[in-house]
Design a binder for these strands. Structure first.
Lengths: 261, 261
DNA sequence: GAGTGGTCTAGACCACTAC
DNA sequence: TAGTGGTCTAGACCACTCA
């Protein structure tokens, strides 16, 4: 079949025709990942607008000099991120919403930093204590076993925002208070080679008691946002248990969910 | 090489040797999905215990009569669910934690039903109204365009738990109040062929005003959990915007996060 | 050095959608 | 009927981990 006239329906889409993708086969970065990143950049940059069809995978793969599975892997990763939608018999198109970041295991420090709030941290306690029953249950250790207790007061713009109480398994990590005041706990854990994998969270609210009110510069009875979390590394072992309280007047959880297919 | 003695290191793992997997090639269910389901069942059932190695993918694929990519696809889907961990040079093993359900786009009705709380719903309002500025922005319609306003009071054990205020784009769905009292909004949307895909949520807290306190049988000033959400379908179009308030004394959000690789 | 998962190829057939 | 994504195969080479 000659090339002329073969794009009866495909003519509607294929915004990719005008785009250039630079694939470096000598790079250690996987080809599918290079492609995914460039597609994502094109979407973010607006070269691929919401609703645009990507054109079929076969054409794309021959044009890029890749196999179809490799192209599919790139596309699939963006589908998983919620940036693209595939429809059998139709094609792959850019999602219509202005969805930005997917959900992250939220680190308050990162949240505040991303919001340009210049967070500061004061370490109130950083010591070894015997595990209480609930801490032992969460961390999977024996009751009374030594764990690290960490209490931090986090502020932004000179105003307290949250009081963070965390428990860590023994010997997981040595926590330097100075470093803890300069960055977030999760960042230090990553630096120590711990790969966070999942977390179980409970978010609720309650009124502040006198002590909490004093800590957070609120009046007694003010609404507090509470969060209790157990975080697990990539082997499924608990690496952190924390109970946090936030001034509801100054902080809210903001996140995006992707529905599991 | 003879088969004898070839399992120098593999002997440690391969708990799968004793397991039987029934793959039906005539079934419309994809092979990788059949395998994934049976692996998941084996993990849940305890036949595959945390820490167990699965044995290498090549052996598994030849034993099952599948190609390696197909086996990988099955394994990958469980890795995505957080049930398995892959380590290059080591193998694939069952995660150590007692992780149950992944994160869902939480429907309060489903949450309560799953907790065996026998939820009941009273539809307070169900009518067409012009969109205010914030509703129009969230739903991507014009300000003043007609949208559906839905106000519901949800109770469990005869006690009010939450007041739900939702806005839906015009002509998306006809909402029968009787059906809304029998099930959840998301369930009705699924029945209408709407595939929920993602949502952006903000969870915060504040003190109840007099009106809210009366609705929820709390005293004025009691802590309320608040949630504002915009939900999108699989094309990225907004299909629902809601502002919910929950009695913090009777409800908390409980969910699990998976960290994106 | 042996074994593992990570990546990639070049095909194939099928189910679904739209015209 | 033509075009799309969904699934599947049978290989290949590489990077990493561990003994």
């Amino acid at each position: 079949m000659a090339k002329t006239g073969e794009r009866s329906r495909a003519a509607a889409g294929s915004v990719l025709d005008g785009l250039h993708f630079a694939l470096d086969r000598s790079s250690p970065v996987p080809l599918y990942y290079q492609l995914a990143q460039q597609l994502e950049a094109a979407i973010e940059h607006g070269a691929l607008a919401p609703g645009n069809l990507l054109g079929n995978e076969i054409d794309l793969s021959t044009r890029l000099g890749l196999s179809r599975p490799t192209v599919r892997q790139a596309i699939q990763s963006l589908v998983d991120k919620g940036l693209l939608v595939r429809r059998r018999g139709v094609g792959t198109q850019v999602v219509h919403s202005q969805v930005k970041r997917p959900l992250e295991l939220s680190s308050l420090y990162d949240d505040l930093e991303a919001a340009g709030q210049g967070p500061t941290t004061r370490v109130v306690r950083n010591e070894r204590v015997p595990a209480s029953a609930d801490v032992a249950a969460a961390l999977g250790t024996a009751e009374g076993a030594e764990v690290t207790l960490l209490e931090r007061l986090r502020s932004a713009h000179g105003q307290p925002v949250a009081f963070l109480c965390n428990y860590l398994p023994p010997a997981l990590l040595d926590l330097d208070s100075a470093r803890l005041e300069a960055t977030g706990l999760y960042h230090l854990m990553r630096l120590a080679g711990i790969t966070l994998h999942s977390a179980r969270q409970t978010v609720g609210a309650r009124a502040a008691n006198a002590e909490e009110a004093a800590l957070l510069a609120e009046r007694e009875g003010a609404a507090l946002l509470t969060m209790r979390r157990t975080a697990y590394d990539d082997t499924g072992r608990p690496v952190e248990y924390g109970t946090h309280i936030y001034r509801a007047s100054r902080y809210a959880f903001d996140f995006q969910l992707l529905v599991r297919s």
